[in-house]
Design a protein around this nucleic acid. Sequence first.
DNA 1: ATATTAATGCAACTGAGTTGCAAATATAGC
DNA 2: GCTATATTTGCAACTCAGTTGCATTAATAT
Lengths: 126, 126
Amino acid sequence: MGIIRKTQSVAVLLKEFENKPNAISAIELIKRLSSKINKTTVYRVLDKLEDDGVLHSFLDNSGIKWYAKCNGCSKTGHIDMHPHFQCLSCGKVDCLSVEVKIPPIPNRKIEVSQVLIQGRCESCNV
Amino acid sequence: MGIIRKTQSVAVLLKEFENKPNAISAIELIKRLSSKINKTTVYRVLDKLEDDGVLHSFLDNSGIKWYAKCNGCSKTGHIDMHPHFQCLSCGKVDCLSVEVKIPPIPNRKIEVSQVLIQGRCESCNV
DNA sequence: ATATTAATGCAACTGAGTTGCAAATATAGC
DNA sequence: GCTATATTTGCAACTCAGTTGCATTAATAT
């Protein structure tokens, strides 16, 4: 079940993703918005925005959840299969626009796949 | 710091991975061995076996940790970049021997990358 | 056989994420 | 605009995988 009502919380959360290409962790959003929105609500709204195809989410190497704006995701399913890049130096996470080809696996039906790449980002790789 | 002494716990844990190609979750190991080894010890031994390049680990989509025997991993780093496959029907997780090509990313230095593929395994895909 | 040092068990903790429920607030119907 | 109804929210308490501190136990070196 996605977003039904246009509430304050939804507006505030959407604003965080406005004009920001990076992914943001749930934890970070909770910290940032702690004076405005309760953490339970942050999780719930993120969940709904994901259902609606506005955001997509993924876990990083330490098991924490990141959200980023969708590009071409639809309500019926997240169709984009872009990898995510996490900088091991500054911690920044973003969506890469390259495509990673998953080879067909004999006898298995692939439904979802996730690629997390870690290394040093443009700013830290100097 | 890896394994220094050949203890009972190490032997018991290694036995679990003997002749088993599948990955096993830390949780599952703790359950299976609860009468023999304390959970803290399970985590610590797994950690050390990973340091030694005997096992490698990865997180699944729900953030739980899986371990599998290494093939060609060395003490100086895990060199294999095989994807992991998790069956959404029976829950089984295993290492795939196919290679996933990560394209070079402009200006970024790739250090690690992880690919988790989810779907239906050979047994469940009928 | 003993001293030394690593490994273990236990209990208590951490921290991201979840749940139940009562209070607040958005929307639909008038 | 006002009210009824259903969704959202906040709060506190909880879950659960994984971690930490510390005293005890068990490998290894001498």
